[in-house]
Amino acid sequence: MTRGADSEVGRLRTVMLHRPGPELGRLTPRNNDQLLFDGIPWLGRAQEEHDAFAQALRDRDVEVLYLVDLLVETLSDPEARASIIDGTTASLRLGDGLRDHLRRVMTDLAPDVLAHTLTAGLRNDEVKSFRSIVTSLLPREDFLIEPLPNLLFTRDSSVWLRGHVAVTSLAMPARARETQLTGLIYEHHPRFADVPRVHGAHLEHVEGGDVLLMAPGTIAVGVGERTTPAGFERFARQSLTDGLAHTVLAVPIAQERATMHLDTIVTMVDVDTVVMYPNMADTLRAHAVTLEGDQLVVAPERSFFTAAAEAMGIETLHQIDTGLDPVTAEREQWDDGNNTLAIGPRLAVAYERNVQTNARLEEHGIEVVAISGSELGSGRGGPRCMSCPMERD
């Protein structure tokens, strides 16, 4: 078995999750929009739902790793600690005096306490032993270090390819520090010491929710609000040059309220089958990008399904619609009806509330592992968003 993945549906062996923690409790009516949540989730219930999700994976022989556990282990390395403290306190809004104070305090924290500060953030009124012009003039409730409630969606900050891991670059300012933490883990944790890395948090924007491993050698990347054309270009060149793909599909995404990443529109449930938001099926297009010598060759735009099937070497890429009518499809799209996580071919995790979508999947022979997500879904993400597959058959 090769570490990493070259498809969306190979048997899942290892996955990284993030159990909702104190950072989710930092959401308020004042900051939830800025931190990209539609509402304020009930933390206790969100944790129960997430624990059930993790257990459903373990019950099917999937190794579950937790991001914060890996981070705490990583922070035992002095070099890793110094690097992340410098990066976290680099904000110009802190001022020199407060920045130096925070660096001194954070340097002396135990790894688990430091991990808590890095993920849950630090408010101005929580700084008790130091006052400066900055702390005096900033509102007491302002965060000096912003919380990271979107860590829940581990898919976005890294993508595992065949034998490689891509650390992504998140477009929204509220999420920028997530890739700093993920990148730190991959650079300093001994479990990943020998894994080659591609892309990086400092490069053009690419988000993991836009990257679909359609088949060995074929990667589809959504290009829109979160992944930029420049980000796609660099990611495609790296993937093709390193032999991680022979074709990378650029898939323009028309932005709607209920679409953000490519995996909010289409995900895979079998080697030749996707679950699809039908309201966009006829308009989803793709450019096939290949490499000739050192030049990227961009094919004319075609139907996504035609371009994908050709690149995958199959006759037809079958689709299962998420709803029988446009209204149902739109409603279940809002509830992440097609943001499924494949545990293996024809075996997928989905939110239980998407009754019609799940019924459609089962009609087509897909076994659905239904999980509760009433609180988890408030950040607009489903099982695929909440999981980073690290190893698949």
Rank of each mutant, 00 (worst) to 15 (best):
P278W: 02
A288N: 06
V349K: 08
I84Y: 03
V266D: 07
K128E: 11
I253C: 11
E23S: 15
M260H: 02
T340C: 13
D335I: 03
S372L: 08
D156P: 01
D335P: 01
M214T: 12
R197A: 03
H50A: 09
L102H: 01
R60T: 02
D6K: 14
T247R: 13
L213M: 13
I133E: 11
E332D: 10
E73S: 14
D59V: 00
R175K: 09
E48Y: 15
E73M: 07
L341T: 12
D321L: 02
P29M: 10
R155T: 11
P190D: 06
R392A: 09
D96Q: 08
L170T: 13
E49S: 09
V198S: 05
G95E: 05
A171C: 15
A171T: 14
S169R: 10
Y277R: 00
A258T: 14
Y277F: 12
T119K: 00
M390V: 12
D86N: 11
M276Y: 08
T74E: 10
H18G: 11
V274Q: 09
M276N: 04
N124Q: 06
F143I: 05
E332Y: 01
T316Q: 10
L122P: 00
S372C: 02
V223R: 06
V64N: 06
T119V: 09
A236C: 05
E146H: 14
W42A: 10
L24R: 14
I371T: 13
D6N: 15
L376M: 11
T273E: 08
T89W: 04
A110V: 01
T316I: 07
G224F: 03
G373I: 04
G373L: 03
R93C: 01
A359Q: 11
Y66E: 15
R331Y: 06
T228S: 15
A120P: 02
R93A: 10
T14M: 07
E207Y: 01
G208D: 06
E332M: 10
V159W: 04
M276G: 01
T154G: 03
F130N: 00
D263L: 02
V167A: 14
S387C: 09
D335V: 07
A110W: 01
A174E: 12
T306D: 15
N150K: 05
T328W: 00
R226E: 03
M276K: 07
P20A: 04
R384A: 13
L296W: 01
R19H: 10
E48M: 15
G222M: 03
V266L: 14
L324I: 00
L376P: 02
G222N: 07
G208T: 06
H202D: 15
S303Y: 08
S378D: 07
R140S: 12
R175N: 07
H18N: 15
R177G: 08
D282H: 08
